[in-house]
Computed example of a mutant assay.
Amino acid sequence: MEIKEFGKTTFGIDAKLYTIENDYIKLATTDYGATLVSLIVKKYNIDVVQGFTNVKGYETEVKYMGQTIGRVCNRIGKGTFELNGKTYHVPVNNNGNSLHGGVNGFDTKMWEATMNENCISFTYTSADNEEGYPGNVKVEVTYELLDDCVNYIVNAESDADTLLNITNHSFFNLDGPKSETVLDHQVKINALNFACVDANGCTHEEILAVKDTPFDFTEFKSIGKDINVEHQQLKNGSGYDHHFLVDNEGFREFARCKGSEIEMIVSSDLPGCHVYSSNFLEGNYSFTKENGKFPYRSSICFETQYYPNAIQTCNQIKPILKKGELWHHKTQFKFI
């Protein structure tokens, strides 16, 4: 176990870096945004997540990278929703919609950290009306290291009915920080259907079968094989930026992703997974690992979550956390 300085935030708060390891994996996180900073697969000495060497990179260079996203990840159409007969307005920060919790979501907060040999836990209390959401919500995020896998576990409770849809937003490149593309990674997703997005990237009710589309990952194929195919949904998402409705229920395998040496298995008990092919990375940033770059489409995200914008749909489970109930979900990243 190790704790060390990770730089000062723009508000002058000292961020810390928390590191644990076992025989297979070395894991580092920071209390700014309950963020996954580094995940080294020791057998290959490869850090499989993109990230920064200073907290300022997460504040000012690439938002959401490796961070805990909430209260509600993904988009809420036009930043408006109804709950228990009342209309709520949350900040609009992305093409007319509310994205990833608003202007100051969970990714911007300083969390309280505790750690032991195989766990790093972060806690944060989101006050009533923070970013326009009702209820005081107590959240605990735990990164648990178990042999060849990392569990991302979230527990939360609220003193009033509210919305909650939390995810981890790590950007994976299984070939490490010196790799400049993820398009050669092979991916398999256990989903027969995906959700459509509009021209502003917002998900609505329309669902399509993946069969005979560029979104068919029911067998392994490279991310780049169909990403430039002429298809309206690829245009709307600027590539893959879509929710896959993972088959079956309960804790199950969602997806597999293969680099040149490492294979990652993503499992979760959530309803689905938003897959994002880092379509808006721009290349050169400060504070990157090993003086690396984050070029366009150099990583892929598997954001396990409830259906995006479900509060505005009539055909999906709505991410409503009832007063006094426990929100408990687990996502696992396993490396072979």
Rank of each mutant, 00 (worst) to 15 (best):
C301N: 13
S126H: 02
K235F: 00
E144P: 04
Y285D: 11
D31G: 03
I166R: 09
Q316G: 06
S268E: 04
L183C: 15
E144H: 11
S158Q: 11
D212T: 13
Y285A: 11
F194L: 07
E140N: 06
E144Q: 15
A28T: 06
N168I: 11
V55R: 03
K318Q: 12
N129Y: 15
L208M: 08
V187I: 14
P271T: 11
I300M: 13
K235Y: 00
N173K: 05
L183Y: 12
F6S: 01
F194C: 10
K322S: 07
I13T: 09
I166C: 12
I207C: 01
F251H: 14
D159H: 10
I311M: 11
C149P: 04
N84L: 02
I13C: 08
S238H: 00
V246W: 00
G51C: 09
N200F: 05
N200E: 09
N129A: 12
K42I: 09
K225I: 10
N151V: 00
K188H: 07
E131W: 06
K318Y: 07
Q232D: 15
I20T: 06
Y143A: 09
V37K: 08
L321W: 01
E59N: 03
C196D: 04
E230I: 14
G12R: 00
N93P: 05
A156Y: 08
D148V: 09
V103R: 10
S170V: 13
T68H: 01
H231E: 06
F194G: 11
R75V: 15
Q312F: 04
Q316T: 08
L36E: 14
P271F: 09
T213R: 11
M264E: 07
F215W: 04
H185W: 10
N190L: 04
K258I: 13
K330D: 07
K56D: 02
N284Q: 13
Q232L: 13
G12D: 01
F81E: 01
F294C: 05
A195Y: 00
